[in-house]
Amino acid sequence: MAIFDIFLLEALLNGVLLGGVLALLSLGLNLIFGVIDVVWICYAELIMLGMYGMYFLYTVYHAPIVAAAAVCIVAVAILGVLLHVLVIAPLLGAAPINQLLATGGVLFFLQSAATVLFGVEFKNLGLRLPVLKAAGMFISYSRLLAFVAALVGMVLVYLFMTRTYTGTAIRAIAQDRQIIPLMGVNSRRIYLVTSALGGGLAGLAACLLVLQYDVHPFVGLSFGPITFLICVLGSLGNFVGGFVAAFVFAEIIALGGLYLDLEWGYVFAFAFFIVMMFVRPEGLMARRS
């Protein structure tokens, strides 16, 4: 039967795993948007820097990979805080579109800083994880790892948001940013914690992506846009929505890639996004009103 074609099954499965990666990517961005109400257009560039960090620590300086990953996560978290303090904080009162454009400037800056510092060559970790072979299908181990990490990351973020004081305060701020400071929550501190958390998630994504992809200064452009679309499709700031949207997108890309080219997979994903914006704008934009 055509439906149980082994290639189709493999593509579907790979789609699920790709969905895990995309979900992980969108997690931090969603958090930032949900709480601070800012779109970090340069989010993918933070991940790019994290990937470079992994490359230098592991491949050039031969640090143990777990230590390298830990350092990268912390470093990108600090970058997130810096981004907030230097760029976002002065613009918190400005029109939302200005914040988006300012982070666009940061995108240019980070991309070219990476070009200047590291050159345009593709770098890779020089570490190849094995490919699992099960029932005639090939499954990338690194994708599986990213998928599991995305799930674990989701659960941890969920627990943090619901079980700790800071997490509760973050959710409260996201609901009403005027009233909550009156309730004794230090909103500046909450924003900093959230930026650090968002940056840390970007760092985690970087550690997992660098296992699968080569890093170069423009790598952010290859998965940045799709990450924003996932967040928008799943209602910006809504974790579960983002998770679902990530898997839908990944399946479209995987199936499009199976039947045509990988680019067509992306074209279909983008087109699907635009159509969905028209079909269900109210469902997608529940937070807007």
């Binding site: 400005a94 200005n98 454009l101 300012a102 400037g105 940061v106 991309q111 070219s112 200047v116």
Partner: peptide
Amino acid sequence: GWDNLVYGILLVIFI
């Protein structure tokens, strides 16, 4: 890369 580096900083400062 340097031109975009300068652009990027300028853009942030301008906004």
